[in-house]
Design a protein around this nucleic acid. Sequence first.
DNA 1: AGTTATTGTTTAAAAGTTGAACCAGGCTGA
DNA 2: TCAGCCTGGTTCAACTTTTAAACAATAACT
Lengths: 169, 169
Amino acid sequence: MTTRWLTPEEQRAWRSYLAASWLLEDTVDRQLQQEAGMPHLYYSVLANLSDAPDRRMRMTDLAETLKITRSRLTYVVTRLEKDGTLRREGCPTDRRGSMAVLTDAGMELLERTAPGHVETVRAAVFDHLTPEQVNQLEAICTRITDVLQGDEESPGCDGLPWRRRSSAE
Amino acid sequence: MTTRWLTPEEQRAWRSYLAASWLLEDTVDRQLQQEAGMPHLYYSVLANLSDAPDRRMRMTDLAETLKITRSRLTYVVTRLEKDGTLRREGCPTDRRGSMAVLTDAGMELLERTAPGHVETVRAAVFDHLTPEQVNQLEAICTRITDVLQGDEESPGCDGLPWRRRSSAE
DNA sequence: AGTTATTGTTTAAAAGTTGAACCAGGCTGA
DNA sequence: TCAGCCTGGTTCAACTTTTAAACAATAACT
């Protein structure tokens, strides 16, 4: 079968997307590094904890929502623990498990830096989009996320074989 | 001034965006690593060269379009040169400069791997979006890119002070 | 000529990433 | 119950990437 190349519109969209996403990630990373002393991923760990019930999460769940390996998460959490923004606690119901718990210091850091972070995101993105565009963006990104997570079971689809193999294979 | 938090719509959009962009970058990286033996950034260097007139570009221009530091680009190009996919040539008009030139091997690699890459992008993104959504995506991302690049000179704007200082300061 | 700015590389240190190995605790079934 | 397998999480060592500062060469301006 011959390759189905991207149409000119698709090409433009893809290029725009790449430029925007790299630039944006860079901007956010830089701002958080500046004001919170940590890159985006680390901040996201704390942010996720602050949303979770009781401000705590199982390592595996955290890794899953952040879409990173457990190994990588261990590395990140170790540093955050050293920083004092979170601590580990054993899991009461499963003695193998451990939970990452946001400390008061971590919560304070979030409260202190969230405004700047939000302001960055606003200045970079939302202040320049119409309400319709905000909704469009959400619809598009949700679709992509669903596809990549395999919440997609259309039988005709070949699947994305290069996705991280979960355990089989 | 009190913080202008994100509206619920904006929050949803932002979260969707983050999930999609991380997942997508991961997917593309993994696929290219698999089939082209290099991560996305490296591939982009080659792709940019292949589009450029005479398949060559100044290092600084390349760094600029890829939005990375020259230092980082040097590292990347050194590896690609070792791989044989590109070579360096001195710049005729500016004896300080050097140009990255795509080799035949590099071109072959692109031709060999482009179909798989396109297929990945299609399967992850474009096969699931309507033509309107494709245009919406482009409009949104172009807007963001323009803003972050400062093609934006509205005088009332505070600017984004954490952008990489180009040379002043 | 004498600054000053750019271009691109080098270097050393720090940071991040990976995958395999590993331990401990759960789970299942004879 | 206990052997065998699965899971959660960490450790380790190798490797890759990233950063920032310093540098050499050349351009450009005054």
